[in-house]
Design a protein around this nucleic acid. Sequence first.
DNA 1: CGCCAAAGCGGACACGTGTCCGCTTCAACG
DNA 2: CGTTGAAGCGGACACGTGTCCGCTTTGGCG
Lengths: 182, 182
Amino acid sequence: MNRPRRADAADNRERILEAARAVVATADEVRLNEIAKRAGVGQGTLYRHFPTREHLLAEVYRQDVDELVATAPRLLAEHDPVTALTRWLDRLVEYARIKHGVFAAVEAGVRKDLSAHSLGPIGDALTTLLDAGRAAGTVRPDVDARDLILLVGYLTRLEQDEWDTRARHLIRIILEGVRSRG
Amino acid sequence: MNRPRRADAADNRERILEAARAVVATADEVRLNEIAKRAGVGQGTLYRHFPTREHLLAEVYRQDVDELVATAPRLLAEHDPVTALTRWLDRLVEYARIKHGVFAAVEAGVRKDLSAHSLGPIGDALTTLLDAGRAAGTVRPDVDARDLILLVGYLTRLEQDEWDTRARHLIRIILEGVRSRG
DNA sequence: CGCCAAAGCGGACACGTGTCCGCTTCAACG
DNA sequence: CGTTGAAGCGGACACGTGTCCGCTTTGGCG
């Protein structure tokens, strides 16, 4: 899109991301001012490159998100739509479990994109999966990606010690609600 | 439980709640320091009476919550369990729509109670409804109140302009997932 | 080259939450 | 009543987020 930036700016941006990745990987508390310090830039610089905390996190996790998104068509090629959707959501859960920040960032990213009348990459992946299911008649026709994103949002509120018992379990319940009545 | 407090303390507590109700009713931004100022107390006082923002809000909305909780047995007396649950959740949605803060406070309250190995009043109401459904064989036996609380948490993240289209719709989807397969 | 406008920078600042601690006030008891 | 110790108070403080603005750097252009 618009990439003719100044060289030093691009540099800073990269250094910020690097610092952010380092902090995210080690500490569980992600403090923006610390990231700025580590990157050797002022807060202002950090905030111009990434207007909100979420923009930064979204970029940090971008690779993971891309990976996840790329999985959707692959799953659809190998399985029926509902199975593909199930597997995909399981994978989402797995990401959310390991990298606690992933899902929060994704969700925030979606909100950001919402105003732009888009659901973002994650939403697009879900739309693909749902469309396939709808076409096959195995998914309720009145469910869209935004619905699912809202529902799986519980992942951000799950306590650590509930993960094993509830994360997948709730996905199953959601899927039951999303399937066409057999 | 433990009510032999000092008179002036009880007074302050009441004044804080009064101020909080006033702020909640008018402004949509709820600033604790403003509430403290309006109540004519220091921040320290406010925070000792209500350790966190959520404790305060929970108390502000306590009456609404009690009302909602009291509804559950009434609904169960008049309808089959799944219908009762449906109506109850619809009522929850209605509360959440009007008083935006209600549900966030409730959810936070639940989290607080979680550590005390309790689900709080809302959780208890849901447990009653779910138990009835389970006994009647119309609700999946592996769903508990905590599951539902997590799922309906989407209400806190719903944008204002999505309410009409999504709030009830998602409740229906959840209910489909929670019902026993017929 | 050297100029200079725009792009970028950094850190001070404003604001909200929640904590801490020395002073004040209550109320129980002699 | 006066004493007294604990309950309660208030506001200063620490900390994180996000904004703002005067100074610096870059790099295109003459």
